[in-house]
């Protein structure tokens, strides 16, 4: 915290432009005045070491979700375990990026004003798609059902893959 700033401003903020105390600034210079004064308090949180730590964590988490693809993943026959695991990993990664790289961790309370409604809308939007699109095949017409791929087609392809019929040299 620099000396000339009132201590009451400490929780206010982050970023170059959140300094509101002091002399009114002309519009254009708003950002530079803010930045040189506030970068003293930047050092208290956004140190490069912290970013690198987040980076290492992100790489580690990516490796973890990649691990589900490897043959050593123990739940290969239960895809839901892997999916749930990957979603947890992805949400953790997203949270890390939002909190630290996007500085949301250090922002004032306005962050909730913007992110929570948008997040709710996002969840809502997805839920709204379920009855029309997610359940579309339950009420499909006969013609559609005939033309769309079904698990039996996958089975057919797998069976076809097992035939050695064509691998043998053809009789001349």
């Amino acid at each position: 915290m620099s000396d000339h700033e009132p201590p009451s401003q400490a929780p206010q903020g982050h970023g170059p432009i959140t300094r509101l105390g002091g002399i009114p600034l002309p519009d254009d210079n708003l950002s530079d005045h803010g930045s040189d004064a506030s970068h003293a308090d930047e050092h208290s949180h956004g140190g490069i070491g912290k970013y690198l730590l987040v980076f290492v964590a992100l790489c580690g988490l990516t490796t973890l979700s990649f691990f589900t693809y490897s043959p050593y993943w123990p739940w290969r026959d239960q895809p839901y375990v892997g999916w749930a695991f990957m979603m947890v990993v992805s949400c953790t990664k997203a949270l890390l990026v939002i909190l630290f790289f996007m500085h949301v961790f250090w922002e004032a309370n306005w962050k909730y004003v913007l992110t929570i409604p948008a997040g709710m809308m996002a969840v809502f939007l997805t839920l709204m798609l379920v009855p029309d699109i997610g359940m579309r095949t339950r009420m499909a017409s006969q013609e559609r059902v005939l033309k769309m791929a079904r698990p039996s087609d996958v089975w057919l392809m797998e069976k076809a893959g097992e035939t050695q019929l064509l691998a043998e040299p053809a009789p001349h």
């Binding site: 009132p6 009451s8 509101l20």
Partner: peptide
């Protein structure tokens, strides 16, 4: 909103 915490220097 934290605005009231700000004081204007005399």
């Amino acid at each position: 909103m934290n605005a009231p915490a700000i004081s204007v220097p005399q």
